[in-house]
């Protein structure tokens, strides 16, 4: 059976597409799935550094599309998880170097071998986005609880629908429970009132993302990270588990830890 080809997209830049791709890829691989991630952001490649695999690149997506190397040769195996692979973007070319037709062929071929093909889309709605969605059968839309990101997400949802990518799912990234409590940040429910989409998970704003990216280690590898936990849950939902989506709680202060210690509050 062919694997699932899922594009991770957002419209707006900087909302966490690459971080999401890296972490879902790692989380799915840790569940024992064979996963390949494609960095479709030609000219601005980043998935490699987020994963800490930047020193291993020999060939890239453009080489594969142009036939300079075989698909197999361009795949980089992750150093921590042997069922996780990366097909990096070219850094010195532009989006026009690959066509949607070539992307369709590449994703199709990868889907024969892998359970998941995750395509990290570039920002924008032009050629790079067209390439990223070309071979995809499913889509995850990443947004943050800000007007600009939600507006762009709405545009992307419309474009996905026009491309027959039905039922995209929404990841709400960088939610801050303290701001939600003050009424200064939209919640998942607020965003869902506005966008015509079903949710798949909420990622709390978490410093550990920056720390882990500094080190080139996806945060799902950190068992204590709240964001990592949220990504692991999304991976399980992708796998079909029916986990409720609960909004992140305030980071524990001293009292919170104490309450949990004496069993007054569950995790």
């Amino acid at each position: 059976m062919a694997g699932r080809v899922i594009v991770i997209t957002s419209g707006k830049g900087g909302v966490g597409k690459t971080t999401t791709t890296a972490n879902l890829g790692m989380a799915l691989a840790q569940l024992g799935r064979r996963v390949v991630m494609i960095d479709a952001d030609i000219g601005l490649r980043n998935l490699d550094v987020v994963l800490g695999l930047e020193n291993r690149i020999v060939y890239d997506l453009v080489n594969v599309a142009e036939g300079t190397c075989r698909l197999r040769q361009a795949l980089i195996r992750d150093k921590r998880c042997e069922t996780l692979y990366l097909l990096p973007a070219a850094q010195t070319r532009d989006k026009e170097a690959v066509s949607p037709e070539q992307m369709r062929k590449i994703t199709e071929e990868l889907a024969q071998e892998f359970d998941y093909v995750l395509v990290d889309s570039p920002a924008g709605i032009e050629r790079g986005f067209r390439n990223a969605i070309a071979g995809a059968k499913e889509a995850l839309v990443v947004t943050t609880p800000e007007v600009s990101a939600v507006r762009d997400a709405d545009r992307i949802i419309g474009l996905l629908e026009a491309e027959e990518l039905r039922e995209p799912r929404l990841i709400l990234n960088r939610l801050r429970p303290d701001m939600v409590r003050r009424g200064d940040m939209m919640t998942m429910d607020d965003v869902l009132e506005i966008l015509a989409i079903k949710p798949i998970g909420i990622i709390p704003d978490d410093e550990s993302i920056i720390v882990s990216t500094n080190k080139g280690e996806p945060v799902v590898l950190d068992p204590h990270s709240r964001a990592g936990q949220a990504y692991r849950e999304i991976a399980r939902r992708l796998e079909g588990e029916d986990l409720p989506i609960s909004p992140p709680q305030m980071a524990d202060g001293f009292m919170g830890r104490l309450r949990r210690l004496i069993g007054l509050q569950s995790r």
Binding site: E146, V147, R151, G183, E193, I194
Partner: peptide, 19 residues
């Protein structure tokens, strides 16, 4: 109003025109 409600109202209106 809480700023998130202002965000929602502005978004609803802008999305009408966008769509």
């Amino acid at each position: 109003k809480p700023s998130k409600d202002q965000a929602k109202e502005r978004l609803r209106l802008v999305l009408v025109h966008d769509r």
